[in-house]
């Protein structure tokens, strides 16, 4: 399943950089009052606002992994 997921991301060309949009994503997070990285999640997996998406940091790590596999 992990392999399939990574493949999907690779095909999509997703990357954390592409998602976040760098500065824009951070600004958007501030504007709506969501502290980036703040979470009440017992897994300490912060929720981040990324181009409008409220994602777990681990979601982004999966995306990064997908990108790396594609490039390798």
């Amino acid at each position: 399943m992990i392999a399939k997921t990574q493949k999907a991301f690779a095909v999509s060309g997703l990357s954390r950089r592409g998602l976040v949009g760098g500065f824009a994503g951070t600004v958007a997070a501030v504007l709506i009052g969501l502290p980036v990285g703040a979470t009440t999640d017992p897994d300490d997996d912060p929720i981040e606002l990324v181009e409008g998406w409220l994602l777990r940091r681990s979601d982004l790590e999966v995306l990064d992994a997908g990108r790396g596999r594609h490039r390798s």
Binding site: D41, L49, W53, R56
Partner: peptide, 26 residues
């Protein structure tokens, strides 16, 4: 705005789903 952000956070924290806020809320 608070309804959207807090519910979206809960969806992700509890692994129920992920919410993309509509652009007007940003």
């Amino acid at each position: 705005k608070t309804a959207a952000v807090e519910f979206g956070k809960l969806l992700a924290e509890r692994r129920v789903g992920r919410l993309q806020l509509d652009p007007w809320l940003l």
